[in-house]
Computed example of a mutant assay.
Amino acid sequence: MSESSSDHGEARASKGLAICVFCDVEPGQDPETHRLAGELGALIASRGHVLVYGAGGSGLMGAVARGVSQGGGSIMGVLPTFLYERDHAAGAPAQTLMLTRDLTGRKLRMMASADAFIALPGGYGTLDGILEVAARAELGLHRKPLVLLDYGSLWEQFRDLISGIDKRGFAVSDTPLFQLAYTAQEALRIVEDKVTA
């Protein structure tokens, strides 16, 4: 397995969308977030979509991937070689695995492979993915929808931060770069509506 140069069509193992889920390898402190990740994975599978994610088997990554796997869905995991060698994607369900040289390559591969993005609550890696997708959208490099699936008002706080940056003239966009959703069903509905619009 090695870094590939193919386009997003490779991620599609079915007629559905390739949905990149940004989330954490940590479980977080609230079991409800873990449940939400599993529910999102189950819905991705039930609606015929492909999960594109960071290939982890623990925390929220593991929960969303197991939700997809248990629902019979397809999974594309993207992992830097050094993480593969360190923990071999411990506990992750069966998936098509893409190896990249580093974390930047992982992020770029995930973005290129996806038709849409959903972010669960997470840490630095999740924020990195969100900001890269939003920055590229602001520059007009893509029109793929980004939905932040909120729990515990984390993404509401992020929205308020971005609003403050916008009001100070540091972010310029004619349309919102992301939307908030509060249920897995709502998040999927938004990306499906936007991609097919």
Score class of each variant (00 low, 15 high):
Val195Pro: 01
Ser14Arg: 15
Leu180Ala: 12
Pro145Tyr: 04
Leu51Tyr: 06
Glu26Phe: 06
Ile162Glu: 08
Asp166Leu: 14
Ala37Met: 00
Gly164Thr: 00
Ala92Ser: 04
Pro27Trp: 10
Thr104Pro: 04
His142Trp: 03
Glu26Gln: 12
Tyr151His: 14
Gly41Glu: 03
Ala90Ser: 14
Ile162Asn: 01
Phe22Leu: 04
Val172Trp: 12
Phe170Ile: 08
Leu60Trp: 09
Trp155Glu: 07
Glu32Tyr: 10
Asp7Cys: 14
Leu120Gln: 05
Arg136Asn: 06
Leu103Gln: 01
Arg109Cys: 03
Glu39Cys: 10
Arg66Asp: 06
Gln29Met: 10
Gln70Ile: 08
Pro176Arg: 04
Ile190Val: 13
Arg168Asp: 11
Gly56Ile: 05
Arg136His: 05
Asp174Gln: 13
Val147Cys: 06
Pro80Thr: 07
Ala45Pro: 10
Gly72Trp: 07
Asp102Ile: 10
Ile162Gly: 06
Leu120Asn: 03
Ala181Phe: 02
Gly91Pro: 03
Val195Ala: 01
Phe178Pro: 04
Leu141Thr: 03
Met76Trp: 12
Gln29Leu: 13
Asp150Gln: 09
Asp174Thr: 13
Glu32Phe: 12
Leu161Thr: 04
Val21Ala: 02
Arg143Asn: 01
Gly62Met: 09
Lys144His: 03
Ala90Gln: 14
Phe170His: 11
Asp150Cys: 08
Gly125Val: 07
Gln29Lys: 14
Arg168Gly: 11
Val64Thr: 02
Arg101Ile: 00
Leu43Glu: 05
Ser58Glu: 14
Phe158Gln: 08
Gly9Ser: 08
Asp174His: 15
His34Val: 13
His88Lys: 13
Ala187Asp: 08
Gly38Ser: 02
Arg35Gln: 00
Leu120Arg: 08
Glu85His: 11
Glu3Pro: 01
Gly48Thr: 00
Ala18Lys: 10
Ala55Pro: 00
Lys144Tyr: 00
Phe117Asn: 00
Gly57Trp: 04
Gly73Gln: 11
Ser6Leu: 10
Gly169Gln: 00
Gly129Ile: 10
Ile130Pro: 03
Ser2Glu: 15
Ala135Tyr: 09
Ala11Asp: 07
Ala55Lys: 01
Phe117Ile: 03
Gly9Gln: 06
Thr33Ser: 13
Ala18Gly: 03
Leu79Thr: 11
Asp24Pro: 12
Ile162Cys: 10
Leu108Thr: 13
Gly57Val: 07
Val147Lys: 03
Ala135Arg: 12
Arg159Asn: 07
Ala63Ser: 05
Val25Phe: 15
Glu10Leu: 11
Asp115Thr: 07
Asp87Asn: 15
Ala119Leu: 06
Val50Arg: 07
Ala42Pro: 02
Val25Ala: 15
Val50Ser: 14
Gly72Lys: 00
Glu85Trp: 07
Ala13Arg: 15
Val133Trp: 13
Val50Asp: 14
Ala13Lys: 15
Arg168Cys: 04
Lys194Tyr: 11
Glu26Ser: 12
Val68Lys: 02
Glu26Met: 11
Val78Asp: 00
Ala92Leu: 02
Leu154Val: 10
Gly91Met: 12
Ser5Gly: 11
Arg66Trp: 09
Arg189Phe: 10
Arg106Gln: 05
Ala65Ile: 01
Phe22Gln: 07
Ala90His: 12
Arg66Ala: 06
Gly71Thr: 08
Ala94Cys: 07
